[in-house]
């Protein structure tokens, strides 16, 4: 078999193994952390510290009755949860997770798809995630679901703009769209991008919450207004797929954020250089996972600390604050790059 293909499949298997485990782990972390913040025990019955709770939940999801509303648009209703997973499990192929390593005298870059247009492709594929939400809301034939998906489509477009423009500012000094080049740039300069690009990082961080429908901006599912928003009519395993997609999307966006602003898999800012061999590969992957884990902890922390935005506040923040800020940041970075500061 083709060596190139085997290498790609192996790398995909590694990343898939990391990202498929995000949802069950986060299920436990989220519930324990929110219990801690709200000063109550949280799930602590199944296994030590409730650690086997995700397993019990998965079993519950599988054996619950799977109801399809009789007035639902059947094909779209059934397709939506599966479609939610598709972009979630595609975007992480563009994230580098270790240094180039030598295998049988060949240099293998540790990224599944080392695309020239990497960052753009990531944003492009991530932007397709909204379709599953819209389809789910429309097909359910429920006014709460429809309201949720209308909110989702408007919200995701609004924040995508600010996010894309703040990401573009990172690419100007790097002079490349390739995520591996962005990591290499941060290695060479011994400083993570979030320091010179602080304004852009702030916009990216806020937009990331909106893009993943997390709590200050979880209006598509706002449970106190819309029952459960776009997935009101979904239960059992189909709901679990939406759940899985949400956490995988969060992790993928966290991985992009780590790559753009926190040196990706590298730790060169602290003078630690990983060797170009298997040890370096394992260390690189572990570093990336640690950075994703920290970002996920921030997601959880913010979710249980901040109240939800009102819809007009959300739109105002997106269009009147974040978008001008990101454009200002872009101009600033471009000017400073021309002036030779970066």
């Amino acid at each position: 078999m083709n060596q190139e293909l085997v290498a790609t499949l192996l790398k995909y298997a590694v990343m898939f193994g990391v990202f498929i485990n995000v949802a069950p782990i986060m299920n436990w972390v989220e519930r324990r952390a929110c219990a801690f913040i709200q000063d109550r025990p949280g799930p602590n019955r199944v296994g030590p510290l409730g650690l086997f709770q995700p397993l019990a939940d998965a079993l519950k999801f599988m054996f619950k009755e799977d109801v399809t509303p009789s007035m639902a648009d059947k094909p779209l209703y059934l397709m939506a949860p599966a479609l939610a997973l598709l972009p979630a499990f595609t975007t992480f192929v563009l994230i580098p997770f270790g240094p180039d390593i030598q295998v049988n005298g060949r240099t293998v870059p540790l990224v599944v798809a080392n695309a020239d247009t990497g960052v753009l492709l990531f944003l492009a594929i991530a932007s397709l995630g909204v379709y599953s939400l819209v389809m789910a809301g429309y097909a359910s034939n429920n006014k709460f679901s429809l309201l949720g998906s209308i909110r989702a489509s408007a919200q995701l477009i609004s924040y995508e703009l600010a996010m894309t423009i703040s990401v573009l500012a990172v690419l100007i000094p790097v002079n490349s769209f390739r995520p591996a080049d962005i990591v290499a740039y941060q290695q060479a300069h011994h400083v993570w991008n979030f320091i010179p690009q602080f304004l852009g990082f702030l916009v990216f961080l806020i937009a990331a919450f909106a893009e993943t429908n997390r709590l200050p901006f979880d209006l598509p599912e706002a449970e106190s207004e819309l029952v459960a928003g776009f997935h009101t009519e979904y239960g059992a395993m189909r709901f679990a797929l939406f759940f899985q997609a949400e956490y995988t999307n969060m992790a993928a966006l966290a991985a992009l954020g780590a790559t753009l602003y926190f040196g990706g898999w590298s730790m060169d800012m602290f003078g630690i250089h990983y060797p170009h061999n298997w040890i370096g590969a394992v260390l690189g992957l572990a570093t990336l996972i640690a950075k994703i884990a920290i970002a996920m902890a921030v997601y959880v922390w913010v979710r249980w600390t901040f109240p939800r935005f009102r819809y007009d506040q959300l739109m105002k923040l997106g269009w009147k604050v974040l978008l001008p800020l990101s454009i200002l940041n872009l101009i600033l970075v471009a000017a400073l790059t021309v002036a030779g500061v970066y």
Binding site: V134, S153, T164
Partner: peptide, 20 residues
């Protein structure tokens, strides 16, 4: 990439938004 980002990811979402 731009085709997916701009057309599929933004403009058609707006179409859907209006239709819904």
């Amino acid at each position: 990439a731009v085709q997916v980002l701009v057309y599929a990811g933004a403009i058609v979402v707006l179409f859907l938004f209006v239709i819904m």
